[in-house]
Structures are given as structure tokens and as C-alpha cells.
Amino acid sequence: MSEKKKIGFYWTGSCGGCQVSILDIDEMLLDVAEQAEIVFWPCAMDPKYEDVKAMDENEIDIMFINGAIRLDENKEMVELLREKTKEVVSYGSCACNGGVFGLGNLSSKDELLEKGYTNKTTDQGPFPQKITEVEEGELELAEMLDHIKPLDEHIDVEYYLPGCPPLPTQLEDALPALLDDEIEVEERDLITDKSVCDPCPMEREEKEIERLIPIQEATDIDPDECLLDQGILCMGPATAGMCEAPCTEVGHPCVGCNGPVKGVEDQGSRMASALASVMGIEGEENKTEEEVMETMNSVRDPTGSFYMFSLPSSIMQFRRDDIDE
């Protein structure tokens, strides 16, 4: 057997779910431990910044990084880890596409801080700042960057494994491929060409949607019928399907956590285009232009819904300041 691979796990701007997902592979962790040595895993071990700094270039074989880049500290760490690593896996939706935190890019940094720290009804704590003077001296805090970015906006990334979090099955499929040098790099592609509809077991009709119904207002949902056909927004058609559609299988619409399928740049506008094309077809020729547009009013919060997990990797990436408040 060849020498054990050195692997590591790191999280940046993230909820922590991705780290839990690593534990979700259960006994397989033991197999991994046999093939690989985990050299860096702040969540489970206690490495210090200086330890990493002291590592050689490319000392780590594979580094899984989850979370988006929100703070200057995130950026510094991933840049350092990049130096020390041969192959970086962008792990989870936040690292790959910015994730749900990416919706923060629809507000400015100041607005976010304002909302979080000064408008709160509870404790009016101090506004976070880079340097805080205390009796003992200066305390330095990580500072928010202007925008959330996916990992590959800062460092080169070899592999992408999106998901919020990636499912144990995805990791179980990915890990052996990543650890096995025999497998060609091209074959290790972790994002599918096909969308969630491909594995989704629901019965689908040719799409003609009259209007969308918020899922909380939907009654009598047929558990075997495509949710979109029932007027419930499901991001499945525009979302990469390597998850095997566990959400729709239990009747929950796909929220789009995997981001777009391979080769598609902008998940949100794809979904917008698809949905706008199939909504309100019935009788459109007898409607005025205004009435045709009204059809789309049932699409609530299109930006938030369509870009929930991929806004920072979309074409626009963040809110621009063309509109005066």
C-alpha cells in the first residue's frame, strides 16, 4: 500500500453543518483513517495557526474547505492552506457558491452590521470593530469583507462538492475517488450535468403553471406528483442533482442548495427563465400585457428564492449601487 494521504478539513463562513456531514459517513471514517491521515481539522483537533504556517508547501494532499469567505480571516486562512495543499475540495454550498449566507450580498456590509448590532431589540452591544482597546491592551477581531464570495474567488480549487450539507452518500462516493490516484481527475467530477429532476421520483406533467402557491398555503399536496406541477416552487429543474433528490422524495421542494448543474453560470436566472416561460400560458393570447405580467406576481421574492444558495457565484454576485435609496 502506498503512503497514507494527508488530508485536512477546514471551515470558514459556515453554519457547521458541513463538518457534521463528515461525521455522518459513520464507519467509513475508519476506512478513511486507514487510507489517510487527518493532519488538520480544527473542529476535532486543536491545531494552531503557527503549526500550519510551519508546514511545507503542498504538504497536505487534500484539503476540504467548507464555508464562504466572509471575513478577512477566512481569506487569510484559505490562502495559507492553499499554499500547503496539493488539491483543494470546495466542500458544501457556501464554499462552492456562497450558500445561503450569500443572500447577504443583497445588502451592503454596513447595512448588515447595522441590522445585526444596532437595531436589535435585545442587547445593544458594542458595534464590532477591528481593534478594541481593553485594559490589557488591544484586541483584534476579524473584519467583515465587503461581500461574501465563494472559495474559488480567492484561491484555485480543484474539486467542487456542493450541498447544504453534502450528503453522506456524496462524500462516500467522492472520498475513495479522491484518495485513489488511479482514478483520472476528469472522472472525479462531483457536480452532475443533470438536475434534481433526473433522480426525482415524482410524476411530472408537461409544465403549465397557472400561478405559484406558497408551500405553507398549499393544501392537498399530492405526494406522488411533481411539486411544480402543483404550483409549488421547486428549484429542482435548475439545481444539480447529485443529491439524488432526497427532499422532493419526502415532499419538500428542492431549495436549490447544490447550485446550478455543471456548465450553467447563473442558477437563478435560469430558473426565472424556465418559470416565466411556463407560467400563465393558458389564455395568454386574450390577456393584456399588464395581465400577462400579473401572472408573475405569484412568484414571491424571486431573487431570494432563485438565488438562495448561489448568489455570490451568479453573474451579478452582489447588489450594485445603481438605485439611490
Binding site: 416565466a276 431573487t303 449601487d321
Partner: peptide
């Protein structure tokens, strides 16, 4: 129509 709503959210 959807595009315009999305543009507005993106500050355009």
C-alpha cells in the same frame, strides 16, 4: 417582468 424584479434586488 421577473428580470426587472431581480434587477431591482441587485441594485440595478
Amino acid at each position: 417582468d421577473l428580470m426587472k424584479k431581480i434587477m431591482e434586488d441587485f441594485g440595478i
